[in-house]
Computed example of a mutant assay.
Amino acid sequence: MDKRLEKLREEYENVPIPKELDSIIERAFQQKPKRKKIFLWPTSAVVAAAILFITTVNMNPDAAHAMSKIPVIGKIVKVVTFNEFKEERNQLSIDVKTPALSGLTNKSLEENINKKYIKESKELYQEFAKSASKNKQGHLDIYSNYETVTDTPDLLSVRRDIQKTEASGYTQSRYINIDKKNEILITLNSLFKDDRYIKVISQNIKEQMQKQMKADSNKIYWITDEDMDPFKSIDPDQTFYITKDHKLVISFDEYEVAPGYMGVTEFKIPTKVISKLLVGDRYIQ
């Protein structure tokens, strides 16, 4: 079993990934929670099931090229479920849907995004399998789903949610934003002329946080010096998406800038605040 998993791991490490995808998608998909860490004990009752899925996805030629065979009309770019895996054992469960893009002419972009999705699902299965093999009295739920949040003739924004629940829960959301006409990956820094956007957007988010807390005492954000790790600035590649009406929305994982009960938090940035910093108005208006 271990040799097969090692072989699969080596195969993934040898898959050529374009530099931009490696630096943006990989970092986004595998970003670790800043505040909440879930500790899992290695465990093997479900290792065989995990290996079966992994082997099917990675070593079966039909499965590997399934997305290229999905019929599309007029080069419609869409998101489909590549695979769904469900398993329950004692107090542990996993339910993971793996999304995949279909319909791009730019097959390099399409295939590498799909490989990243599959790799992420593999890691979730392996995490569950290890926990199931030894932690028989423990509790762990892993759930992952996806949703197309924006789908216009020009834009496609896809959100993938990953939720893990052990002693407590943790949810993170990751977005892929694509220019459907030019078939390119849209990154946050590609929207702007220079890095001034980091400070401007961060300041606007702080102002929104303060207004929300003033209007609703139940809302709390970590922005004061008294907080253990106050929010100071967004990351240059902060998670984001673009709405159907071309507005920029910045997203934070659960526990990233607020207590867990606030969940995943989002802030729509007024276009007038960033208009002078934008490269153009194709995406953000």
Rank of each mutant, 00 (worst) to 15 (best):
K181Y: 05
A64G: 07
L278Y: 07
G260F: 10
K36G: 12
T43I: 06
K107W: 02
R282V: 07
D227V: 01
Y221N: 02
I70D: 06
I274P: 13
Y146G: 00
K115I: 13
T152K: 10
Y175K: 00
V15A: 14
L52Y: 09
I17T: 03
E110H: 06
F252C: 02
L109E: 00
P61T: 00
N189C: 06
I51H: 12
T152G: 05
D237I: 08
L140D: 02
F82Y: 07
L140V: 04
M213T: 10
Y283R: 06
R159C: 07
I76K: 15
R9I: 04
V257I: 04
E111S: 10
K32A: 13
Q285G: 15
G138Y: 03
S102V: 12
V149E: 04
Q126K: 12
K36M: 09
I70R: 06
S108L: 11
K122H: 09
M1V: 08
K276M: 12
R159W: 04
K206D: 14
I242Y: 08
E26G: 12
M228N: 15
L40H: 00
N90K: 14
Y117M: 11
Q31I: 09
I176T: 00
D225H: 05
E13M: 12
A215G: 13
V96Q: 12
I186C: 01
D161T: 00
L140C: 12
Y261H: 14
Q172C: 12
P259C: 05
L155P: 03
N182I: 06
I201L: 13
L140H: 02
E166Q: 09
E123T: 03
I284W: 09
R27I: 11
A49M: 05
Y241M: 06
R160M: 03
P16N: 14
I113W: 01
I24Q: 01
K37P: 13
P270S: 11
K36N: 11
D194K: 07
K69A: 08
K107F: 08
Y143W: 01
L248E: 04
I25R: 00
K199R: 10
A64L: 06
Q30A: 11
L101C: 07
F128N: 04
N218H: 07
D195G: 09
A49W: 03
V47G: 08
S233N: 09
E6G: 12
Q172R: 08
E256S: 02
Y255E: 06
